[in-house]
Design a protein around this nucleic acid. Structure first.
Lengths: 77, 77
DNA sequence: TTGTGACTGTTAGTCCGTC
DNA sequence: TGACGGACTAACAGTCACA
């Protein structure tokens, strides 16, 4: 589905944006979040359907409330 | 991890709350979201680590922005 | 109307690399 | 520093019968 891709892409862009603001590399974000370097890469490219727990891990690593990572995500699915 | 359970539980409570406000049964919410009734049940009980796409499906069915479903979710993971 | 355990196919997520 | 691929294991999606 196209809409699904938009959701994942939008989420990936949000991660990319906040990671830039935090001045972190994909690798250091991965380390902070307890995730894999290649996983962060694929999330930012909208290739992964991230789970709630990992959304929270990422929010935590970026020092943001989890809901902040979804504000730019559309309602459609 | 205990914190993880708290996140899932908190998310489940949020779904339960908004479903009540919308006056929907688990079954009718399931139908609106294109998901299974028993899946909704397990989500509300915090037994499922829901994915981003399904969070959006639920938000859509409840006519809420996806971020609204995460406002009560803690930052920890 | 909802809770629950169990099940299978698919994908999340890791680890090894290369470019 | 990040994109991208292959191979692998753990976990989720989705569904069922039964309570």
């Amino acid at each position: 589905m196209l809409k699904n891709d938009n959701i994942l892409l939008s989420f990936g862009e949000t991660i990319h944006k906040y990671r830039g603001i935090a001045g972190l590399s994909q690798e250091s974000l991965a380390e902070k979040a307890g995730l894999d370097r290649t996983y962060i890469s694929s999330v930012e490219r909208g290739q992964r359907n991230v789970s709630l727990l990992n959304i929270c891990k990422l929010a935590n690593a970026l020092q943001l409330p989890p809901s902040e990572l979804l504000v730019n995500v559309g309602r459609s699915a």
